[in-house]
Design a protein around this nucleic acid. Structure first.
Lengths: 207, 207
DNA sequence: GTCGCTATTATTCAAGCGTATAATAATACG
DNA sequence: CGTATTATTATACGCTTGAATAATAGCGAC
């Protein structure tokens, strides 16, 4: 009964591998199919190891959700340049790979479907959502101010809700049925829609 | 060992009850928690009965998904009146209960997260999505024509994608964090946004 | 080098899963 | 009113699940 040889992973690395394997399994097999054993296979370890790094499978899944939110919001929150460029990039980033792809929405949906069930996931979700919308709202405040338009809190709030909805909705459409759209079509529609909503050019001529 | 007494349900009714119980369980416990036993308890029967009405649990779940799509699209596809009223009602219906509530999005998300996994669900999803967007596109074509605006296919397509995105996105926002919005706020934002996008009043003054 | 620590494997366990089968209660029909 | 039909219950089966435990292989310290 010889024991299989193995490799000791460096500090923290195995944790990350397990989280990534968890997400792979959820996107490929659904939450149901993401079993401890399946995740371990994907990570190239045995099932028992999960409990060496996490208190429970549920805790590992919760951390995996944090990773998903980060992957969906990090890039868009780090836009740089003048207000117009930042707004344009924010929209484009959210409607282009890797943020907009079928894996992303599978993961997002899997967790969203659990928000009512699991208070821990609900809290993680709410934080991420508010951060995302606040980022957009500040972006819009800067943009409107730069354009010499009214930028009071109430106006910014309404615009943030509308554009957040627009971007989210197009993101969902693109993720779920990307093949129904031409290359760059969703981004183009989002840009011209945002211009119509805000009543201002956002410099899409440059493209 | 006395056997519990029971009631024989009329034609087709039990089927419907089982589907409804399936949806209840999915929204409350997630897809994972929607087990045959739990569903049976909710429906007030024993687990074995499921297989008397459905070939398998998976088939029952697929039919439950059809029911969800129907509940999300039926009302909006039956709008009546002049083009302007129909468009206005279409938007309002999708952003008001019962279409917009947390149970709806739990169910929607649970199934969306399975679309990549299960080809049967993927097919059901695609049909529903295309039907929904076509309804909206025809609505817009009528509306633009009535307003004397250009209503060629390409224009309608772009508007349909944009407004579908807007409505879907606001629907998601409202379902997930309804408490962050004032009564009627989402509908109001959707209406004014649609007007800005289309460059036309849609008669929200009446309100 | 070898010793001690711990990351990893291997194995086991009880609980819960979807399904299959047989007994039986409720209804329809002559 | 008796009998055939079938919707429903009750029970059992084999399998998978997340978790617990004990053995051990890898690796840094000395």
């Amino acid at each position: 009964m010889n024991r299989r040889s193995f490799h000791r992973a460096p500090e923290g690395e195995r944790r990350q591998e397990l989280i990534e394997a968890t997400l792979d399994c959820i996107s490929e097999f659904g939450l149901k199919g993401a079993t401890v054993r399946q995740i371990a296979i994907r990570a190239g370890v045995t099932a028992g190891l999960v409990r060496h790094y996490f208190e429970s499978k549920d805790q590992m899944v919760a951390e995996a959700y944090r990773a998903v939110i980060a992957s969906l919001t990090d890039k868009a929150s780090q836009v740089e340049g003048d207000p117009e460029t930042r707004l344009r990039d924010f929209i484009a980033i959210n409607l282009t790979e890797p943020v907009a792809d079928s894996r992303s929405i599978s993961l997002w949906a899997a967790f969203i479907s659990q928000v009512r069930v699991d208070p821990v996931l609900a809290e993680i979700h709410r934080e991420g959502y508010l951060a995302f919308r606040n980022t957009l709202q500040e972006l819009l405040a800067d943009f409107l101010a730069a354009k010499g338009k009214p930028a009071d809190a109430e106006t910014c709030r309404a615009f943030a809700i509308a554009i957040n909805g627009l971007v989210d909705g197009l993101w969902v459409e693109g993720c779920l049925a990307g093949d129904l759209f031409r290359e760059g079509e969703l981004v183009a529609i989002a840009m011209s829609s945002a211009e119509a909503l805000l009543g201002t050019s956002i410099g899409t001529a440059k493209q």
